[in-house]
Design a binder for these strands. Structure first.
Length: 516
RNA sequence: GGCCGAGUAGCUCAGUUGGUUAGAGCAGCGGAAUCAUAAUCCGCGUGUCGGCGGUUCAAGUCCGUCCUCGGCUACCA
């Protein structure tokens, strides 16, 4: 029911012409972690991803492959569903822009824009590059020795004139600026917000929103010669999935979306065109758009021509799924560009997962297993040190929640690691192996405090590392019903007396081949 | 060119509204411990806080200027 707290977040829909790479995995991973976190935190979450399947490039690729575009997209969009499965993404819907529901939504929003006189029929003329599906200005072009004009991308352009529908974007400058002003958190990070603001302040021109040069797309209502502009088509997916054009039911509950996660390259579409389209159609804009950065590979820019594209499946095969999920969100302040290097990956994997966290769980659970009859012990009176550690662990939920609400994954993880390091220090200071001989009752309290701390840390790490944390929670015999954040409320702590099984290491160290 | 942002320990970065001896992690050096995945813990940093000038009792934190790097500057996942 609508009484539940809702959270609707989306990835971009990925263009099917590309093979899934680390960038796609990164965007969706960030959303997956947020979705999992919000679910555990009591939200009714809708997490959407999908594929963008229209456009001239797809049409051309399908022709080249000798099959019709629908068969082509059926095939390649599967790659993205496979990626989601391999990375254990928990999206609630996977939308394809070739679906009937989406066609309906696009035509409905188009009709709204027509009815509101936000779209008019005009003509577009300019230098067009088929390869880029883009028009270029005269000043952007260069001439080849053969006298051909080419775009900055190197694509050949031709002079094209076509009738086109235009969206009255020029009328939206002030309204957009007011919207940004009223919603200071709409665009993040801050530096991206500045870019958008300056772009809009620089003045907006009407936007061509239809094409007649190809057929693979959604026809404009009542004018079949025109295909809807791919971005109007693509962006609309976010409301399609929420149920639009039916604005009652789910749509009323889900929209506006809480977060559109995007790469920095498509910021403008999401922060200028999209809110303008929506407001023009009488629909509320989304609440927030976050633009993350790009990865480099061992310091090198990633490109197909360099042949250094990073395949998510390969990473998972090399280092493990949870390790990769952890690394991607821990290594770089979210929003910045980051570098993927083998050494950095191994350092995180061994230093933080195996040594700090994995070993903490292993050393503590081993002691419980060997010295407490394999049973979570009953604690006695707490000392100052006990309370310090318990308080630090207890404060974590609020801290992590705060960071994740701003998409600061790295800070959320750092906050958790502060407690992990403190817990390792506590183990050494308390030296339970000494207490075993000198003060066995005190040892029981110490091991209880540590078990409880590990429980809290592990519950909080579930969104990032679902498999590994499940294993640790299994070892602690935490029931499925006690794994939500309700179990992190203050006053709630571990039941003593639970019997645990023999602990096993969950985070293996990465050992280089041939090393000894 | 214009606009925006960044330049802090070997590396990656934190540094609130200007105010005690500028911090963390990693790497490095030394030591302790032995429960644990040879994992852990403790100790050790004289850093021109990009340069110069200025405001102030006081500036990494404000102002000016210069240098370097990055981003944006329209219809390109």
């Amino acid at each position: 029911m609508s009484a539940a707290k809702n959270y609707y977040l989306t990835t971009p829909i990925y263009y099917v012409n590309d093979a899934p790479h680390i960038g796609h995995a990164y965007t969706t991973l960030a959303c997956d972690v947020l979705a999992r976190f919000k679910r555990l935190d009591g939200y009714d979450v809708k997490f959407l991803t999908g594929t963008d399947e229209h456009g001239q490039k797809v049409e051309t690729s399908a022709q080249a492959a000798g099959i019709d575009p629908q068969a082509f997209t059926d095939k390649v969009s599967q790659n993205f569903r496979d990626l989601a499965k391999a990375m254990k993404f928990t999206n609630d819907d996977f939308i394809r822009t070739t679906e009937e529901r989406h066609k309906k939504a696009c035509q409905a929003i188009w009709q709204r824009l027509i009815d509101a006189d936000e779209i008019y029929l005009g003509a577009y003329a300019g230098w067009y590059a088929v390869r880029d599906e883009a028009y270029y200005g005269e000043d952007e072009l260069t001439k080849t020795p053969e006298g051909k004009r080419v775009a900055p991308s190197g694509a050949e352009v031709e002079w094209v004139e076509e009738p086109s529908y235009f969206f009255r974007l020029s009328q939206w400058e002030d309204k957009l600026l007011k919207f940004y002003d009223d919603n200071p958190d709409f665009i993040a990070p801050k530096t991206r917000r500045n870019e958008v603001l300056s772009f809009v302040k620089g003045g907006l021109r009407d936007l061509s929103v239809s094409r007649t040069t190809f057929k693979w797309g959604i026809p404009v209502p009542n004018d079949d010669d025109h295909i809807m502009y791919v971005w109007l088509d693509a962006l609309t997916n976010y409301i399609t999935s929420a149920g639009f054009p039916d604005t009652e039911g789910e749509f009323a509950q889900r929209w506006p979306a809480d977060l559109h996660m995007v790469g920095k390259d498509i910021l403008r579409f999401h922060t200028v065109y999209w809110p303008a389209f929506l407001m023009a159609a009488g629909i509320e804009p989304p609440k927030r758009v976050f633009a993350h950065g790009w990865w480099t590979n061992e310091g090198e820019k990633i490109s197909k021509s360099l042949g250094n594209v990073i395949e998510p499946n390969q990473l998972v095969a090399d280092y493990g799924l949870d390790q990769v999920r952890y690394f991607l969100l821990r290594e770089v302040p979210f929003g910045n560009d980051g570098d993927f290097s083998r050494q950095a990956m191994i350092n995180r994997m061994n230093g933080e997962l195996a040594n700090d966290y994995g070993n903490l769980a292993q050393r503590v659970l081993s002691m419980v297993f060997k010295n407490c009859d394999a049973t979570i012990p009953e604690p006695g009176e707490y000392t100052v040190e006990d309370n310090q550690l318990l308080d630090a662990a207890g404060a974590l939920l609020a801290t992590v929640r705060g960071h994740l609400d701003r998409q600061h994954f790295h800070e959320a993880l750092e906050a958790i690691w502060v407690v992990i390091r403190a817990a390792n220090g506590y183990v050494d200071h308390q030296a339970p192996w000494k207490l075993k001989k000198e003060d066995p009752d005190r040892m029981l309290t110490v091991l209880y405090v540590l078990s409880e701390t590990i429980r809290r840390i592990t519950l909080l790490l579930q969104p990032v590392m679902p498999d590994s944390t499940a294993k640790i929670l299994d070892q602690l015999v935490i029931s499925a019903g006690d794994r939500t954040f309700a179990a992190l409320a203050s006053g709630v702590s571990m039941k003593a007396g639970t019997e645990i099984s023999k602990p096993e290491g969950v985070f293996p160290r990465f050992v280089e081949e041939g090393a000894n």
